[in-house]
Write a protein that binds this DNA or RNA. Structure first.
Length: 412
DNA sequence: TGTCCACTGGAAGGGAGGGCTT
DNA sequence: AAGCCCTCCCTTCCAGTGGACA
């Protein structure tokens, strides 16, 4: 049977044939339940732009899945509709600092927003900063209106590149003759603002909006709305929707998680050929989300970090609990040589350990053993066998699949 | 109370890689 | 082709540290 014929037959058998995009967290509906206050607050802040006045800069913070990005995109979409109809000179750009995380790339993206011809574009590297800055200024002056720059996950930008970028962006207005730039910073980590220079900090957060987590009943409303919008009431019972909401509420009220649960439990039910989504599909979806997040995090790790993680897993497999940095480094050096790689220094490995810790793949905490030194105490935070399997998918590390450590490498 | 261990983590800088300018 | 610039990944150097032990 033709591969795609099969797909078409399957599609006919699908439980839900409506628009699946509605069941994605990235979909912005026409109504955002329980975020009316935040929407109107941001709307009020940005409204002066319609009269050609620069709106205040805004700093938005709240945990993941509390609707920060959705509200900002929602408000900017409305703003764009109005400015298009009334032909007003207001534009905005959305940048996610997960990927746009350097001084250069932020300015490059802003500059390229106004570039109509491909060959005029600022390359992703190569130009002196000064030239990029001047080009951005020229382009903004040519545009001559109000330009709103949204920096989502701004904490990533600050931790990686410091506050230089923000300093430059905030100073841009002093050097612009016609245009005006406003900043909207979005962060799920309030701590980062402590790292900012006091002047940058006060100018960035002329206005602040805090997004509280959703509770279970609010999440349920959000899911109900989506289900109605997708015309999928006959697929999801109220019980199932409530369960998705309850599970996500346990995770600090994460709407993104709740919507993912809804969609993936639907996929689970379809795969099984069920007529409706059942609570057990939701539980299955929940554990699948957890596992696939871990697997994805591991897959995207650079090879050296994979080796460090593998060392920790192997040590743990040997029954070693509470590993020290020194022990991890010893194992790492051995297996790096085994796969024909030059081991990096211990200093570098301590950075890798911190990164693995912040990704939640391991737990590492600083502990002092008195005269026996001070080190990090490290344990895997994920299932060892599954994690090993994902790591050894890497063509470089295939040979490590069945490796067992000789005892003396961990026991001193 | 001072010493000392086994690191931690900041700072500075090297060099490779990608790209532009002259 | 040579000279720059920027980012990324890494090394080298080193001051700093919590707490057991003498």
């Amino acid at each position: 049977m033709n591969l795609f014929e099969e797909y078409i037959t399957k599609k006919r058998m699908r439980l839900f044939t409506g628009n699946r995009e509605i069941l994605m967290p990235s979909y912005i509906p026409e109504r955002l339940p329980h975020r009316e206050k935040e929407v109107s607050r941001l709307g009020e802040i940005l409204a002066p732009s319609l009269e050609g006045v620069k709106p205040s800069n805004v700093f938005i913070y709240g945990k993941t899945g509390t609707g920060k990005t959705a509200v900002v995109k929602y408000v900017l979409r409305d703003l764009e509709r109005v400015t298009t109809v009334h032909n007003l000179n207001v534009r905005s750009i959305y940048l996610n600092c997960e990927t746009v995380d350097t001084h250069y790339s932020v300015l490059q993206n802003i500059g390229n927003f106004f570039m109509k011809k491909w060959d005029e574009r600022i390359p992703f590297t190569g130009w002196p900063m000064e030239k990029v800055y001047e080009t951005v200024k020229d382009k903004l002056n040519d545009f001559g209106g109000i330009f709103i720059v949204v920096l989502d996950e701004i904490d990533k930008l600050i931790t990686k590149s410091g506050d230089d970028v923000l300093y430059h962006l905030l100073n841009l207005n002093d050097e612009l003759t016609k245009a005006r730039v406003s900043l909207i910073g979005i962060s799920n980590n309030i701590q980062v603002t402590q790292m900012l220079d006091a002047r940058v900090k006060s100018r960035l957060s002329q206005e602040r909006i805090l997004f509280p987590p959703y509770n279970a009943s609010q999440l349920k409303d959000i899911l109900m709305d989506r289900v109605r919008l997708a015309n999928a009431e006959d697929v999801f019972s109220e019980e199932v929707i409530g369960l998705c909401a309850a599970l996500a509420a346990q995770e600090h009220g994460d709407a993104r998680r709740a919507i993912d649960l809804l969609r993936i439990s639907l996929e689970m039910a379809e795969r099984e050929g069920a007529v409706r989504v059942l609570p057990r599909h939701v539980y299955e979806a929940s554990s699948q989300i957890e596992l696939s997040c871990v697997a994805e995090a591991i897959r995207t790790l650079p090879i050296q970090q994979k080796l460090v993680l593998l060392s920790i897993l192997l040590n743990s497999e040997m029954g070693k609990i509470n590993q020290t940095t020194g022990e991890v480094y010893a194992t790492y050096s051995k297996i790096a040589k085994m796969v024909g790689m030059q081991p990096v220094t211990q200093r570098r490995v301590t950075d890798f350990i911190s990164e693995l810790d912040s990704l939640g793949l391991i737990s590492a905490s600083l502990k002092s053993f008195g005269r026996y030194g001070r080190t990090k105490v490290i344990n895997p935070a994920i299932p060892v066998d599954e994690a090993k399997e994902v790591i050894t998918e890497d063509p470089f590390l295939e040979d490590m699949k069945n490796i067992k450590l000789p005892k003396q490498t961990v026991l001193h």
